[in-house]
Design a protein around this nucleic acid. Structure first.
Lengths: 120, 120
DNA sequence: TTCTTGGTAAACCATATGGTTTAATAGCGC
DNA sequence: GCGCTATTAAACCATATGGTTTACCAAGAA
């Protein structure tokens, strides 16, 4: 069960409602990034970017590891499964979905993870 | 293409980040509801509920039809497909997903819609 | 030790959000 | 028209959000 209490969904959706944060998340799919790396692309102060990271962190979407003076961030996409789950309930209310999802299933048996339990 | 400009995703995620609004959305899966119906379950003023509906509406998740003095709301779940699409990119980064999705695909060939184009 | 770098903390600011209450508007029943 | 019902509008309030700036602290480099 990926069930998350409502507050967790709140934080999750809220974290994703900002384009900067979504961009950061995307950047993190490339590789781990230091806070500074994450901040650089954006026209905002370092401190602001740092706050964004914290929001992502508190939504569980980012994990932070401190290495010396650098804070290294890693995407933690597990929480997104909670959204998927939430979405599932509504899936039957739109049509295009089946095509989309099916494509997904075909598409990408995770190339990055060590092929965990992929549909056995 | 369900592509939505970033601002649309912003509005979408933001609309969903509030538990009241998610509850309203869920209520709307049962049937169409007047604003008053939507408001009733919540410990808040009518006006407050009305504002929530507007947020859902501006995210495209609810459509409003005026019938006499009543405003009748209907869920518009199409925009959720945009989230699904956004999520798709990250899907490969978590594992449990495949099981979940597959279950979904089996589960519910939409019982409410007139069997549109279901995977031909 | 001193300087620079990577980052947080704190104070502050403008605007957004979620709520209230009190009008005001429009449609139905009488 | 008169009053009740369904809803919005407007004014207001407290708190949250997204940003800034300035200080501060820890870790490498010189």
């Amino acid at each position: 069960m990926v069930y998350q209490e409502p507050a967790q969904l709140d934080r999750l959706f809220h974290a994703l409602s900002d384009p900067t944060r979504r961009a950061m998340l995307k950047a993190l799919t490339e590789d781990e990034q230091k806070i500074g790396d994450l901040a650089r692309p954006f026209a905002m102060s370092f401190a602001a970017a740092s706050k964004h990271v914290r929001v992502l962190e508190s939504a569980g979407l980012v994990r932070r590891r401190i290495e010396g003076r650098a804070h290294v961030c890693r995407i933690e996409s597990e929480p997104l499964a909670a959204i998927e789950e939430w979405l599932a309930f509504y899936a039957r209310f739109w049509s295009r979905r089946l095509d989309t999802l099916e494509a997904l299933l075909q598409a990408a048996p995770d190339p990055t993870l060590p092929a965990t339990e992929e549909k056995s």
